[in-house]
Design a protein around this nucleic acid. Structure first.
Lengths: 150, 150
DNA sequence: TATTTTTTGTTGCAAATGCAACTATTTTAA
DNA sequence: TTAAAATAGTTGCATTTGCAACAAAAAATA
């Protein structure tokens, strides 16, 4: 028991570490690539949803996004329909970095699946998506201050 | 492409976040549970190997372990055969917390695999272990200062 | 054997992380 | 329609994280 989650933890930390080292070249500091790719792929997304998507604390996201803005990778635009919201968009600079992030991520994906048949690759994606869905329920529950019972 | 790694990242962050919140009750601060379980399961392990096992920076491990020692969860013993090494052991206090960490981890594992048949659970473990092995090679390579080519 | 390289551990420093606590809108419900 | 709850965003503060850069011991190699 609890082996799968350990494996997943190891993989995630290793990959994140690799990415952080590799993206320094593009003046992206720790973790920023996570936000930038998603803003490029979901232009207009708001901070709160981005944090949920990435599964990171709201305040951590707030600061990472602020820094991305200060460094000219993205911009925040006030939502005219909803004064509470700020929509996030990549700048030209941000859009220019996107392909490099994507390429790196795709490469890591390829390394991760080395030796896998197409069928195995399909299988692991499906299974891992199910795990994610199972877990995100608990994450939101616990993040909101609730206590899991076990 | 790069979908699997995103899923894995989401799962890992969500689970780590849950664990960190749940282990505060036992006076374990962020990340410490990772080290403590492994020291309990591998008494005598040295810091360097532990960092490799967890896939975390050596210096991060050094500080987490120092804090676990300061707070009485583990102790460092000088290795008589190798003066460079310090072997890590859980104290009584550490051993007492272990079952609670294990129980939480096992529960998260159960939640993660909700709706999985035994066969699916076996399959995902096998596949994820292969991913981990594929990725740890690159992690060590990049951590040592080498550049991946892609 | 002597020297070079690798392994293990440490600390300084700058930055990221996340919990509290707060404001301001928007949505829900009384 | 007003009050309460939920959503979105921010900042203070303490802590963790990780890259550099260093020291000391051990292992590899010349």
């Amino acid at each position: 028991m609890s082996e799968i989650l350990r494996e997943i933890g190891m993989i995630a930390r290793a990959l994140d570490s690799i990415s952080n080292i590799e993206f320094k070249e593009y003046d992206l500091t720790k973790g920023q690539y996570l936000y930038l790719v998603r803003i490029c792929e979901n232009p207009g997304i708001i901070q709160e949803k981005l944090a949920e998507m990435i599964k990171v604390d709201r305040t951590t996201a707030a600061r990472a996004i602020k820094k991305l803005e200060m460094n000219g990778f993205i911009e925040k635009k006030d939502d005219l329909q909803n004064k509470k919201n700020k929509n996030l968009f990549p700048t030209e600079k941000g859009k220019n970095v996107y392909p490099f992030i994507k390429r790196e991520n795709d490469y890591s994906d390829k390394v991760a699946l080395e030796g896998f048949t197409q069928e195995e690759a399909d299988t692991i994606l499906k299974l891992v998506q199910r795990v994610r869905k199972n877990i995100e329920t608990d994450w939101e529950f616990v993040k909101k201050g609730n206590k899991r019972n076990y």
